[in-house]
Design a protein around this nucleic acid. Structure first.
Lengths: 320, 320
DNA sequence: CTGAAAGCGCTTACAG
DNA sequence: CTGAAAGCGCTTACAG
């Protein structure tokens, strides 16, 4: 007999399809007694709305959009950070019969008429996020955004502090910070958190401009070590940057961590598979929460705690 | 005025909606003259089918399923290989208005009634693939599968040969191979390709049982080096395995590549971000091709060439 | 607060 | 080979 329909629920509850529809969609203006009857019928039949039908009737799609701003069209495979976002979103949507529409774009042009439930935004600058919010009705940004845009972000500044504090405690006194894109609030907060600790310790920070890519980090670290051969600690504002820095150090004959200790940020696969000390952020959980916030139309700004995972790159002792 | 509908096309072409539907869906039994009229109208109006409506009317979904078999529910973020598959699929589907339904499961239980266009299979053993093929109507397996299941795979045996040959040419004579799950045809072929080269060189191979995970590789490599301290080269059948091996070597005081050279397989982010020599397979392209094969109902078995990317872990010389 | 009815844009027997 | 018609499972004015 196939899956139960609205009609089945209506019949069992002894009301009209309209009423059932209203209850399902949490619309106001339904007598509490009817509401209860419908809810019971839904449970009894195990009813779940047919999303394609809803999409057709309502004109909106049964879709959650994931919008990733990145110049690299292959970013999804090149940057494991996105994979974590995707993983978290997929997990949050599991069983919900909601489809994910993934967009990887270099930039947001014009205005979008989002046709689905809404969108989760990655690396989208505040102004664009604002526009998308209007087009979509509902968006949640990963990382702080414009005032009226919901967001969820790790405690970036605290992460920066943890990283540099760790380097300092390990005895490092010439510490460089490699930051990320100036347009990325996360990158800026991490840098500032790190720089503050360096200054508070009475040290002179060395700042290197990064862009969250391996290649740039590698090049800039070579330049850094040429100009400041006494650097003994590096805080990189993401793991890819840390990996690039390590590559440059190794290529120029420095030992890690003996000569230079490195701490990254993300604690993703790049860090865990290569012994990189890193600030841990729960990307998967954050993305899952963002997705759920979109679906539930929740508007708020969440900051998530971070921690430090210590590995070999900052001097974790060997066990044999 | 909104997007054009079937009705609009029918009116412009001067035929019925039924006829238009038949042309759109490439069904036989339409007069060539009518077919042309419809096609012209489609182009003129820029008509594209409303997939939710089609899904509702036909009972099938506008969806491509991606089925990943993995014991780890977080595999999507833990293993960057899947991210590459996802990236390739998303790219192939871009602009097609087709949604991706992603499933990460420990095992395939019972029979599935696939409701969408079909499925791309990752790590699905032949018998299950066979069943899914029936349920879905159309599937394509990443990696060789049952006789009647279409597949696309890298030239695994050749990759194994390339890897070991490279170690041999670098002067390594005590070479170990860490393989993958016995149930995974890719893993088996890589191992056999590598072992053959070792034997052909008149050497005695050392085989280590792996499972494509970092943790197992780390543990087994410790055991390996305890039992065979003279090992000077390791071919690991995937990058995660290579990373685990390297971790174990470093933890037990061996230098890479000076004491032991390592070659992995995949050449994904784990390899490129940490100087790991690896056999390159074009996962993204392969996955994209698989997706397109499902949509086009193409049935064939494709083998894709591989190559070797040499980095520090096998003795690539330093540049400064 | 409630329901009858039209309609979303397609597909698919069915009759011809 | 073709078209009129029913129907997929919902939503949403509209009237009451």
């Amino acid at each position: 007999m196939g899956r139960p329909t609205l009609e089945d629920v209506a019949r069992l509850a002894g009301v009209s399809r309209s009423t059932v529809s209203r209850v399902i969609n949490r619309q106001p203006g339904v007598a509490p007694s009817h509401r209860r009857l419908v809810q019971e019928a839904v449970v009894e039949l195990g009813y779940r709305p047919h999303l394609a039908a809803r999409a057709l009737a309502s004109g909106r799609a049964d879709t959650l959009d994931l919008i990733i701003l990145d110049d690299d069209p292959d970013a999804l495979s090149a940057n494991p950070h996105y994979a974590r976002v995707l993983a978290g979103t997929v997990k949050a949507l599991a069983g919900n019969d909601i489809r994910l529409q993934i967009h990887v774009l270099p930039t947001i042009v014009g205005s979008w008429a989002g046709t689905g439930f809404g969108a989760v935004l990655i690396n989208v600058p505040p102004e664009s996020a604002q526009r998308l919010r209007r087009g979509y009705g509902w968006v949640v940004s990963m990382g702080r955004s414009a005032p009226r845009v919901s967001s969820i972000e790790p405690d970036n500044a605290e992460g920066g502090r943890l990283a540099v504090d760790h380097l300092y405690r390990a005895g490092r006194r010439r510490i460089a910070v490699i930051d990320g894109p100036e347009s990325n609030p996360c990158a800026v907060q991490r840098r500032e958190g790190g720089l503050r600790v360096i200054r508070e310790a009475g040290l002179e920070p060395v700042l290197v401009r990064g862009d969250f890519t391996f290649a740039t980090a590698e090049r800039r670290t070579r330049e850094l070590m040429a100009g400041h051969p006494d650097i003994d600690g590096i805080f990189a504002c993401c793991d890819m940057t840390a990996a690039g820095a390590r590559q440059a150090l190794s290529a120029t004959g420095r030992r890690v961590p003996d000569d230079v200790a490195i701490v990254g940020f993300d604690d993703g696969i790049v860090a865990s598979s290569s012994g990189l000390t890193s600030v841990r952020q729960t990307v998967e959980d954050n993305a899952g929460l963002a997705a759920r916030m979109v679906l539930a139309r929740e508007g708020r700004r969440v900051t998530v705690p971070v921690s430090l995972t210590v590995r070999e790159s900052s001097g974790h002792h060997r066990d044999a």
